[in-house]
Design a protein around this nucleic acid. Structure first.
Length: 562
RNA sequence: UGGGCUGUGGUGCAAUCGGUAGCACGUCUGACUCUGGAUCAGAAGGUUCCAAGUUCGAGUCUUGGCAGCCCAGCCA
């Protein structure tokens, strides 16, 4: 697989790694990991982390583990584990035989906790949630030490053992690290290491009724796996001293944690909690609704993995929190698809055209180029006949200046077909255009005029004789504002949902060559954009998602003028 | 009236030992074209958060401010 990271200059993480390498740290080893919690589907922000961690590993000839951080059984499910594995693989990365789970380490973590207790560095606390909160103090004032803080080792050992055996109800007791209730860093104020939780775990079932907290588990997991560089997001900067403390107390392998800014994209939200809310509230059809910023949604929509990787390489890595313009992602997708997509003609909003001087029962086979960017893609035949369809938007009865397409009395080219001239407009009583009558110039077969005559417009079209009916789903931003989370007092981010983000069109007409398209296949419908066959397709009807439109200055101008 | 982190064109990133700000996306012009695509050529856009200092020279160093983000879950 192409290593996009080699193309760019060193980012600050690579600089740190190269310094470490130069100093012979970790025997020259580079070992990273991608540690998702299986409580939701992966999104484009995770793709950044995945590309970073796996990319760094391949770049430095190291390894990258996939480890599920499943320390909270109340939120985690196997469905998420499976989707995450699928997404990482689809993105093009391989954890080989290094698939791990935090739950694999529960016993090990427990034993380490025993060590801390024996060394007087951890204690069982009987404070309830409210009292503990109260005793924690505030950002500007120190906390109060727990009255249970100085229990002796034997009692702590006994109580912790009984916690594990299930003698105490949820929330009644915790195991806490004994650090410093007056620390300016809140994370150091005797943090909870274990809580009692009588909940079934997706992998360990009912084996445990106490579960380790993230802060206790995470750094140790990295240590156990021999991770050299623990790359995580900015909000864990203040947690680093705590991980350092645990690791130093235990005297175990000590990875170096490096924090970077997570990806934010405009016109969308990136929090798993909010995405879950959209899914559960039925605002979208599921985690893979093509409007979602999830990897599975992008895959379904037709974004190539290579385009996502390229995007992740281009946005760079830094500690500055920012918001990337979704236009950059779209640019990467277009750039990728432009080179790789086979072209085909499809009319999304059909308008019937009758070529009056074209013979009744003749069907001609026209030669069409499959991909002008790639001659090796070859050509195909497209049927042309007396009755065909063009895009409704390609005709205007009373066109404005600079409208290059069809209008009464005007001549345009049908791509790979003939020049046609509109001679008559047939309307119903309401004035809606029902069909167009045209004539064609037989001398322009294939789309070139022997007399050198030029036309301004070239239209795509589909022959009525062999058109395939399809459903096409058009998408726009899920939210209609740049920053969906910016809401007035009392507002909700869902108020910013774009009511027109999905448009479903049926009766679209496609050229016969797409007949055997399979879910996941990507095509360009000439002039209309890139499309991808949706899994909802049936024998009876193909369903296409529009991945993206082509760049369209005309449409943009129209939109600007309202 | 705590701690941590961060401030470079609209946006995202660059700028080796301090050497006079560059790339990409976006925007706007043209050219070309059997996709109003692609491609090509060009333009606009920056007191590098502010101030003082060191220096021949500061985005880079020093000091002092200011602003933004994160932290008070038995979530991760």
């Amino acid at each position: 697989m192409a290593d996009e990271q080699t193309k760019t200059k060193l980012n600050f993480i690579q600089q740190i790694i190269e310094d470490d390498l130069a100093n012979c740290l970790n025997d020259g080893r580079v070992h990273t990991r991608f540690p998702p919690e299986p409580n939701g589907y992966l999104h484009i922000g995770h793709a950044k982390s995945i590309c970073l961690n796996f990319g760094l590993a391949t770049h430095y000839n190291g390894k990258c583990n996939l480890r599920f951080d499943d320390t909270n059984p109340t939120k985690e499910e196997s469905e998420y584990v499976e989707s995450i594995k699928e997404d990482v693989t689809w993105l093009g990365f391989d954890w080989e035989d290094r698939l791990y789970f935090a739950s694999d380490y529960f016993q090990c973590l427990y034993d380490h906790a025993l060590t801390l207790i024996k060394n007087g560095k951890a204690f069982v606390c009987d404070l309830n949630l409210e009292d503990m909160r109260h005793n924690r103090g505030t950002l500007t004032s120190p906390g109060l030490e727990s009255p249970y803080r100085n229990r002796d080792v034997a009692e702590n050992l006994d109580l912790f053992d009984r916690m594990r055996k299930g003698e105490f109800p949820d929330g009644s007791r915790t195991l806490r690290a004994k650090i410093d209730m007056a620390a300016a860093n809140m994370n150091m104020r005797d943090p909870v290491m274990y809580r009692v939780l009588h909940a079934a775990h997706h992998r360990t079932g009912d084996d445990w009724c106490i579960y380790p907290m993230y802060d206790w588990a995470h750094g140790l997991e990295d240590s156990i796996e021999g991770i050299t560089h623990s790359i995580c997001t900015l909000e864990f900067e203040d947690h680093r001293p705590l991980y350092d403390w645990f690791l130093d107390q235990l005297g175990v392998h000590h990875p170096k944690q490096i924090e970077f800014a997570r990806l934010e994209l405009n016109y969308t939200v990136m929090s798993k909690r909010k995405l879950l809310e959209l899914v559960e509230g039925g605002y979208v059809s599921g985690w893979d609704d093509p409007r979602m910023p999830t990897i599975s949604a992008m895959r379904r929509r037709g974004y190539p993995a290579s385009a996502i990787r390229e995007f992740c390489a281009r946005i760079g890595v830094a500690k500055v929190k920012g918001v990337v313009d979704i236009a950059l992602l779209q640019h990467c997708v277009r750039d990728d698809l432009n080179k790789s997509s086979l072209r085909v003609m499809g009319v999304i909003d059909p308008l019937k055209v009758v070529i009056e001087n074209f013979p009744q029962d003749v069907v001609e086979e026209m030669d069409a180029v499959n991909n002008p960017e790639d001659p090796s893609a070859g050509t195909r035949k497209v049927p042309f006949s007396r009755v065909l369809y063009i895009e409704r938007g390609d005709f205007m009865e009373d066109p404005p200046r600079k409208f290059f397409r069809l209008a009464p009395g005007r001549e345009v080219r049908l791509r790979y077909g003939y020049f046609i001239t509109c001679t008559e407009v047939i309307k119903n009583d309401a004035g809606d255009v029902l069909e167009l009558r045209c004539t064609y110039d037989p001398a322009t077969r294939g789309g070139d005029s022997p007399d050198g005559r030029k036309v301004k417009g070239t239209l795509h079209w589909v022959s009525h004789t062999s058109a395939i009916d399809a459903q096409v789903r058009l998408y726009d931003h899920l939210f209609n504002v740049v920053s969906p989370l910016d809401v007035p007092e009392g507002g909700d981010f869902k108020d910013n949902l774009n009511p027109d983000s999905l448009q479903v069109l049926s009766g679209c007409k496609l050229e016969p060559s797409v007949k055997n398209a399979k879910p996941g296949d990507r095509l360009q419908f000439e002039r209309m954009g890139y499309f991808c066959v949706d899994p909802d397709s049936t024998e009876a009807q193909l369903v296409f998602n529009r991945t993206l439109t082509l760049k369209d200055p005309w449409a943009k101008k129209q939109k600007k003028q309202g």
